[in-house]
Structures are given as structure tokens and as C-alpha cells.
Design a protein around this nucleic acid. Sequence first.
DNA 1: CTAGCAACAGAAACTCATAA
DNA 2: TTATGAGTTTCTGTTGCTAG
Length: 281
Amino acid sequence: MRPVELGHRKDHPLEMTFHSHPYYEIFFFHSGRCNYVIGPNVYSLSPGDLILMHGMTLHTPNPDTRVPYVRSMIHFQPEFLHEFMNRKYIAPLLRPFEELRNYRLQTGARKDEVERLLADMAALQDSPEERAYERFLLRFIDLLYVVGELCRSPMAADAVDGVRSEREHHVQRVIDFIESHYAEDFSMEDVERELHVSRHYLARVFKAWTGWTVFQFLYQRRINQAKTLFLVDGELSVSEVSERVGFKHLSHFSRVFKQWEGCAPEQYKRSLAASPRSWRS
DNA sequence: CTAGCAACAGAAACTCATAA
DNA sequence: TTATGAGTTTCTGTTGCTAG
């Protein structure tokens, strides 16, 4: 797998699943309507929006299927930059990602520039010509510069977050609640008590906005945390991790983990031990 | 037209016992 | 120690309602 990859630009079923991966990601939204959940934040995206992510943050788009949904995704391994350029140029390029905040940027006047770079990258990535991938990487570095400049411009940053609808507000509050209580005993009654809104209504609004049920979201959060724990501390037992992320019964954890990850927790743990990931350092 | 609540059937999640 | 089978409990999605 190449260190930098530009993703498909058309609808892709795989991307609809809630996911996390050990890469940095740049997501650019060309057109359509889409709600996006990134870690603890929810966004209504507009064309021209660009999102920066550390891949281990849970993220999922929920596009409106009535309008064409076009976007680009770039996954990259940050350490590839070290092979490609002098150390002193690297830090500012990675800073936006390393702050570990998941940024939504509005490209505004620079939308065309970003789209041109992405189009070039798409063409070069598929090109059989000699040096095409090197030229692809140069466009990518240029894109990182543009991103860095956008981050520094206060207007583009997420600080100016437009007016939120009541529903979006509810969804955000549910996610906030999950974020702070996912490792504890969790029930919809608690959410209802905390938010003073009927659990039935919340469940419906949540599903409509995110495309996920509250519990699907909760489990993803727990499983993601479990994966992180396995990565950080290989000594932890499966039952220890199960308890720490909020499952009361190992049996339940095991089942849910397998359901989402495709393998049992113990197996996942072993696979990590077999192939240590370089990005951990 | 949107926000909100309640009830209910069916789906899924939880729990316990037990096997590997 | 971890995973799975099966019965019980809880949640989800739908329908229908009220109120602004």
C-alpha cells in the first residue's frame, strides 16, 4: 500500500460504515448534502468543506441520498514525509493533524485551488507515466501547505459554526453524553433524564441525523477505545479491556467486537502483537 | 410544518450457563 | 481465560396523537 492514497470520488458502500484506521485523513466535500460525525462533533457539511482527521477518531458521513454526493478522501501515513523531504519543513505540515483536533475547514475562496490539486492528484495516481507518483506526492505536499494556511486563517476555522437546528443540537448533546459516559453503565433512561427529552424522540432524531442508532454509536465508541487500549498496552487482558470500556459482561464485549471488527478480541490482540504498527511511536 | 410524547411489535442487546 | 448458545430484558422504529 502506498503511503498516500486518494480515495474514490463516487459513492462507496464501504465508507458508509463507521470506521477508524491508523492514518491521517483529509476529506474534501465537493457537492451534495451530508451530515458528518467525527468523534464527539457533528457537522452539516457544505460544498467546499474540508475535514482533517486523525484516523483513529471515529468518523462517518451520512449523506442525503437524494442528491449526488461527491467527495475525495486522502489517507496518508505521516512518517512518509520523512523520506520525502528535509526534517525542518515537515513539522508545520503535520501540525494541523497532530493537534489531534478534528478540524472542519471552509476553503472559501481557495475552493477552486483545492479542487484543481485533487483533480491533478487523481489523474497522476492512475497514470502509468514514469515519475507520476512523485508528481502526485508534490501536489499532495502543496495541498498540505494550503491546508496549513487555511488553518491559520481565523475565518476558515470551525470557530464560526453556523446556526444549529434544534435536532442537530439534540444529536450533539447525545454524543456529548456518550463521550463522557460510554465507559459506564448506559441506558436510554439516563440520556432522557440528562437531556429532558423523550428517549423515543431522541432515538429517532439521532438515527435520522447520523444514520446510526444511539447504541450502535455507543458500541463503536467502546470498541474503538478497546482497540486503542490493545494498541497502547499489549499486556491488558481481554476481560480487563472489556470492563474498562464499559461492558459489564465479557461475553457481550466479545460478541459485539466480533460483529464490528470481524474477529474476536483475543485474535485482534494477537494480530497486533504479530505486526507492531510504526505509527504508534 | 416542526417539536414532542406514548404505546407496541419486533429486533437487538444483556445475562447466565457452559464449553473450549 | 475467552467464546458461544439460549432465554430474558431492553431498545428501536413505526404509528398516531397533541401543541405551537
